[in-house]
């Protein structure tokens, strides 16, 4: 009984009620969009490319976070969906000469279907087994991509080269600026959709299944379909990111999609914040910029540092950067 009182908000405990601190959400949006547009004018093209990549990774990690963070199905193989998305885009661009924008929905749909196909049998696997199976998938992906039987489409070991699209309608943007704009726009859309999804009844059901599968079932939720659908949506989002990455990097090859890619996405998710919508943004920035910094020490340093940071986060900050930000006001107030 006593413990309930001690858990009262700090303001109550100290007897001082602080005035509420509110910001108009429209102002926040305006600041955010301005910040996103800023690099267009200030960043040189390589930095812009890195930011584009970070946004792409953020989307991919968001996809992973939906299924692993929010729904509790641990996937260590999301690099596979990223790879499928990338190859779909590359093949459509290079072999079929289709317009670049058409590759994005196509990649999303195809990855959604693949995700459904994998998510269905994955239902029968408990947390650990799913992790193990998806990890195996991640390890096997490059080999499957190199397979001679599909070489005409995938280009085998050589991979496929593509080119970045020019800005349409004579917009005064170079290819990097245009791609940055497209990517950030898509990312914004995906993140808003994901936030709305998680705030909805379906989102709550997803989390209920993660936390109390039996209770969720007892309340009449269709666990099997919901979990499979979550897997499919997750694969869609990650596949979309993969398609964008093919365009941004202008190249796909089996060796770009090794098991480390899946692990990178996983690390980004943990560092950004498991089961957080804004977390993947930090995760995306982390996986792009931290290895660059670390690589100056040694070629292997990024991996070692990645591993150490991952473990450190799990030990000290299991909520990731997003969790830290959420707790920050409370921490400051305690001072």
């Amino acid at each position: 009984m006593a413990s309930q009182f001690s858990e009262a908000p700090p303001s109550l405990r100290s007897g001082v009620v602080r005035p509420g601190f509110r910001v108009d959400p429209r102002l926040l949006w305006a600041i955010g969009i301005a910040l996103l547009l800023l690099p267009l004018f200030t960043a040189e093209s390589y930095r812009l490319f890195q930011l584009t990549l970070a946004a792409i990774y953020a989307i991919a990690i968001l996809g992973l976070n939906l299924v692993t963070g929010y729904n509790g199905q641990i996937s260590l193989g999301h690099g596979a969906f990223y790879a499928v998305g990338a190859y779909v885009a590359a093949i459509m661009l290079d072999k079929l000469s289709l317009p670049w924008w058409s590759t994005l929905p196509a990649a999303a749909v195809i990855c959604g279907i693949v995700g459904w196909g994998i998510g269905r049998p994955a239902l029968r696997l408990g947390g650990l087994y799913l992790a193990l199976t998806t990890f195996s998938l991640a390890v096997a992906v490059p080999q499957i991509l190199k397979y001679k039987g599909i070489e005409d489409w995938t280009g085998g070991v050589q991979g496929v080269l593509v080119t970045k699209p020019d800005a349409p309608f004579g917009l005064p943007l170079d290819v990097d600026q245009f791609l940055y704009l497209v990517t950030v726009g898509i990312a914004l859309g995906v993140f808003v959709l994901a936030r709305n999804l998680m705030a909805s009844r379906i989102g709550r059901a997803m989390m209920a299944i993660r936390d109390h599968a039996l209770a969720a079932e007892a309340m009449g939720m269709d666990i099997a379909n919901l979990k499979t659908a979550t897997f499919a949506v997750s694969a869609m989002i990650t596949g979309l990111a993969g398609a964008l990455s093919a365009i941004a990097v202008e190249f796909v090859s089996p060796d770009s999609f090794q098991a480390t890619l899946s692990i990178t996405l996983f690390v980004g998710m943990v560092v950004g914040g498991v089961a957080s919508i804004i977390g993947p943004i930090f995760g995306g920035l982390f996986v792009v910029f931290v290895p660059n910094l670390a690589e100056e020490i040694s070629k292997s340093a990024p991996g070692v540092i990645y591993g150490c940071i991952l473990i450190a986060f799990l030990f000290v900050l299991p909520g990731g950067v997003a969790g830290l930000l959420r707790r920050l006001p409370a921490l400051l107030r305690r001072r």
Binding site: L76, G127, F266, V267, V274, S300, A301, G303, I311, L314
Partner: peptide, 20 residues
């Protein structure tokens, strides 16, 4: 999830340390 994460961290550290 935490366990899997720590194992993955261990994979990263050990494999890259080996290469290093």
């Amino acid at each position: 999830l935490t366990h899997v994460g720590v194992f993955i961290g261990l994979v990263l550290v050990v494999s890259n340390l080996t290469g290093w």
